[in-house]
Design a protein around this nucleic acid. Structure first.
Lengths: 153, 153
DNA sequence: CAATGAAATTACGTTGTTGTGGTTACCCAA
DNA sequence: TTGGGTAACCACAACAACGTAATTTCATTG
């Protein structure tokens, strides 16, 4: 038996807390596509990676905060490049046109102090924690699998 | 001849930088209605106050920042009470469900530091300045009228 | 008072993001 | 190999937030 080879569409939607319709729509409209295995017709299966889960959760969080999906699309055009490793301590800051990833708290405070337009601040550490919690909650029944394994996807 | 008795619909839209359709839609759907004179049928005129202009500019700024109008409606349910006098130094902070007005910068920093969910920060001083600038720009031709008079509306 | 310009109203179309439900086609187990 | 389950796909409806273009009705000027 293989270890978790990623997350199915249905399980992904459950973990992230979105509807399957949303997951599907976002995939077909090129917002977030499954990086492990893309669909190629009816009957085929999508396979999402752990990083995909985090990105999807970011989308959901922004939507819950009242941001339009259209704006979320813009954010991800930028964020996809920067989103490398230690997201945990970073903050995503959206300023009208562009977006920034701040590593230290000081950077963030500077932005807030100088702030001219609207600032939108999203702590990524919290996002990751929530995803981890939901993974544990939904994978507990499926026997053997540690979080460490899950995140390596 | 009377001094500026408020702002007409068309002039208001120009000053704030929105379409007349938006102004109309927001009025008929009870987001922001003209406080000096409401419409009561075709041919009648709406009359907006200076405070109305600032509120409208807040709406536009939030829209430009990618916030859904539906969320803006929620914000104004709250903000309408607090929006009294010295807005200039205040910041509007939106946190998922509710909103807060911070007077000092320290309050704001605290919120950012503790921040769990998504924070949306809007400096109201800038808004007021922009409205003032546009009032001057559009009222210059209409002869006599100082900004002090305009703000007293 | 009548005409005219302007502003509110109405009507219809559009677009993006879903919900719902049916259809197709693959994957896997028996 | 052959079903059966399931996941992707498709079609349609709905809704909010407008754009655009008549159309009504007032306010004001001559």
């Amino acid at each position: 038996m293989q270890a978790e080879q990623g997350y199915s569409g249905k399980k992904t939607a459950e973990i992230v807390g979105i509807s399957y319709r949303q997951l599907d729509y976002w995939a077909t409209t090129d917002l977030i596509k499954p990086s492990l295995s893309k669909a190629h017709g009816s009957g085929t299966r999508r396979l999402y990676s752990y990083t995909d889960l985090v990105e999807l959760k970011v989308v959901k969080t922004l939507l819950d905060a009242g941001i339009k999906l259209e704006s979320v699309r813009d954010v991800f055009s930028f964020m996809r490049q920067q989103l490398g490793e230690d997201i945990s301590s970073a903050n995503l800051v959206i300023q009208g046109s562009g977006s920034v990833l701040t590593r230290s708290g000081d950077e963030l405070i500077d932005l807030v102090h100088n702030g001219q337009g609207v600032l939108n601040i999203l702590p990524l550490g919290t996002i990751k924690d929530e995803v981890d919690a939901q993974i544990v909650a939904f994978t507990s029944k499926s026997s053997e699998s540690t979080l460490a394994q899950a995140e390596s996807a």
